[in-house]
Amino acid sequence: MTESQPADENPTRATTTDPLKNAFGSLNDLAPDLASLQDLATRGSWSSILDKVSRARSGTASLLTQPHHHLTYLSYNTLALTKLRRFDEAAQELDSLEDFDSSSYKYESYPVIYSNRTGSMVPFSLRWLYAIVPVKLGNRQEGLDRFYTLLGFVREKLIQKGAANLQVSVNCWKKREIFVINCLIGLHLSNKEFSVCLNLINELISLDALDPISISKLGYIQMQIGDLEGAKTSFNRVEEISKEGEVDVEFRNLVNRNKALMYLVGKDYVSAVREYDECIERDYTDMVAINNKALCLMYLRDLSDSIKVMENALERVPTVALNETLVVNLCSMYELAYVNHSDVKRTLSSWIAKVAPDDFDSSCTRI
């Protein structure tokens, strides 16, 4: 879930009779058995979430006794359907809702239940799902329109929270603004709308001129449009920022991965492997470095080692390494390396079936 508590609420101090006064104490204070739902989501057990929501909704003694309970469980159910690529059903769940601004979704409409609490009880995750599901159904323009509407909504909240001097809320909504902009960048990038992407990334950088991730993304897009000097300048800026103070492993690895990309453009695969090795030495769960190192070895015609890099990662950290991109690349290497690649891929597919989360796309093995 994007978040695990109702969003947009006015953080007015609750009275002792307010059932949400301990909302931030534990997930189960917020909605029945919510901690279990969150745990299932973390483990990728989306089918189990659908079962749990169905049981909570059914029967005469439904667990969902308050208005915000229904919205919270609907959010998890819609997310699970989306993860399982059951997009039509996810859309039906969203269609069951009224307008998000409806009085039915405002705390003040239920003064007996929500004493001294105002604002919307619609989770931010539900607003995000409302935007992403049309994209998954092939209605890209509708999804884009909804994402831009969501961005406008987030910015309105930022103004409101800033005017009220609610710094904790401001920080939360700033993160949401960055999240939505990144979603938009992804959508435009998939359609090769690079000029829009550059505008959006520059917006991100204007929010935080020292953010290494945004500056690195700028470099990636500059590379895609052939502006290699611009990309080099962006990547050098990230490296300069890393020298200005204490930085964590993730930041240092970002610097190395940026350098490796520049080597890749120049087809200097040996130097790129060296950069990726530094990343992996610091963090053996850096799947971007692992995947790209294996590809570099493949370009160097060292299929044996490239396959070992992938297989070792899957064996060592399966829950982290198991993603469709890595598996597609590994299967491509099998096809190049082995005459009996179908048998090898079937073995891999059998192993994946035992350890993969519910939303893993097993068709990526191309058996």
Rank of each mutant, 00 (worst) to 15 (best):
V247P: 00
C331L: 08
N253R: 03
E311Y: 07
N291R: 12
N329G: 07
S350A: 11
F251V: 09
Y284A: 15
E246I: 14
L264Y: 06
C331T: 08
M298T: 13
N329A: 09
L264G: 01
D305V: 03
V320W: 05
S349M: 04
S350W: 00
M310T: 06
K243Q: 15
D343L: 13
L348W: 02
C296K: 05
V320N: 09
L261V: 08
L322I: 08
E275A: 10
K354R: 12
S306R: 01
C296W: 02
Y276T: 06
D343Y: 09
E324Q: 13
N292C: 06
L314Y: 09
V320I: 14
R346W: 07
K345R: 15
E311N: 12
K354P: 00
V317L: 08
R257P: 00
A313F: 05
D248A: 11
V328R: 15
C331Q: 03
H341D: 11
V320A: 13
D305R: 08
N312Q: 12
P318R: 05
Y299G: 03
E244L: 14
E244S: 13
C279D: 04
L297A: 08
L326N: 01
M298S: 15
V265D: 11
V288H: 07
M262N: 06
L300A: 06
N329S: 11
Y269E: 01
A294C: 09
L297E: 12
V265K: 13
L254H: 01
M333E: 03
Y276M: 09
R274V: 04
R252C: 03
A353C: 03
W351F: 05
Y263M: 11
T285K: 15
A337W: 01
E335Y: 09
M298K: 15
R301I: 08
N253K: 06
M310E: 06
A272S: 13
Y334H: 09
V270H: 10
N312M: 10
V320G: 05
R252G: 02
D248K: 09
D286V: 06
D277F: 12
N253S: 11
I241C: 05
L330F: 04
C279Q: 04
V255Y: 00
E278Y: 15
L300E: 10
V265Q: 14
L254W: 01
S342G: 02
Y334V: 07
E275W: 00
K293A: 02
V255M: 04
